[in-house]
Amino acid sequence: MTCPLCTTLDAPLISTPVPGGPADAAVNICATCADQATAPDHFRALASTMWSEDPALQVLAARTLARLDTDWARDLAEQLYLDDETRAWADNVAAATHHRDANGQPLAHGDTVVLIKDLNVKGAGFTAKRGTAVHRISLVEDNDAHIEGRVEGQRIVILTEFVRKR
């Protein structure tokens, strides 16, 4: 079978739920896509698959594009048209995750957060100062306590307990 998300041929497909929408919404995708920790270039086929007629696949494509931190993914995300109901489902990432800031507010891909504490960034040799805005965050899928974002040009992992939603 072919993975509808990345168009990999003859890959075993895994039924993957697409939360935030209908309870039975799922897409059969390859293990590499389901892992979501793969290199962004694996998802280059989204340029064609994002136009699928399957709403669950459209939502998964939109969320994947939002998660990727590349120029080509941002360009595709801007081109993607979704009807109002499907767009609301795609934007309902908060229902799909349990990432919450220090005040308990739900966090979503693309949100802007502000650091509420000075953070020593290990391996980068600088301190991210309290009050620093982190734009267009990404959620770490397998850990609700972690988000990713760019601070001083470095992509870092930040604990959600040290941020508040802007």
Score class of each variant (00 low, 15 high):
25 A>P: 05
107 L>Q: 05
69 D>L: 01
108 A>N: 05
118 D>R: 10
84 D>V: 07
163 V>I: 08
65 L>P: 02
24 D>R: 03
124 A>P: 13
49 T>L: 04
51 W>L: 09
165 K>E: 02
58 Q>H: 04
156 I>S: 06
29 I>W: 05
85 E>S: 09
123 G>R: 06
3 C>V: 13
51 W>R: 09
38 T>Y: 13
9 L>E: 14
106 P>W: 00
114 V>G: 05
88 A>Y: 01
17 P>G: 00
11 A>L: 09
89 W>D: 00
12 P>R: 04
86 T>C: 02
91 D>F: 01
104 G>D: 01
157 V>E: 07
13 L>H: 07
20 G>A: 11
14 I>M: 15
73 A>I: 00
29 I>S: 04
136 R>L: 07
121 V>P: 13
47 A>F: 10
2 T>I: 10
56 A>W: 00
91 D>T: 13
119 L>M: 12
129 K>M: 09
75 D>I: 10
34 A>E: 06
153 G>P: 01
81 Y>W: 15
126 F>R: 14
154 Q>N: 15
148 E>N: 11
117 K>T: 07
89 W>Q: 01
102 A>I: 07
106 P>K: 02
126 F>D: 11
49 T>Y: 07
116 I>V: 15
78 E>L: 14
13 L>G: 14
157 V>T: 14
10 D>Q: 14
66 A>V: 03
72 W>T: 08
16 T>Y: 07
108 A>W: 08
117 K>Q: 09
134 V>L: 07
131 G>S: 08
6 C>W: 12
1 M>S: 15
149 G>K: 01
85 E>C: 03
149 G>I: 10
102 A>V: 14
7 T>P: 14
98 H>S: 11
72 W>A: 02
23 A>K: 10
19 P>E: 03
151 V>T: 12
141 E>V: 08
105 Q>E: 09
67 R>C: 10
75 D>S: 13
8 T>I: 04
166 R>E: 08
73 A>H: 03
118 D>M: 15
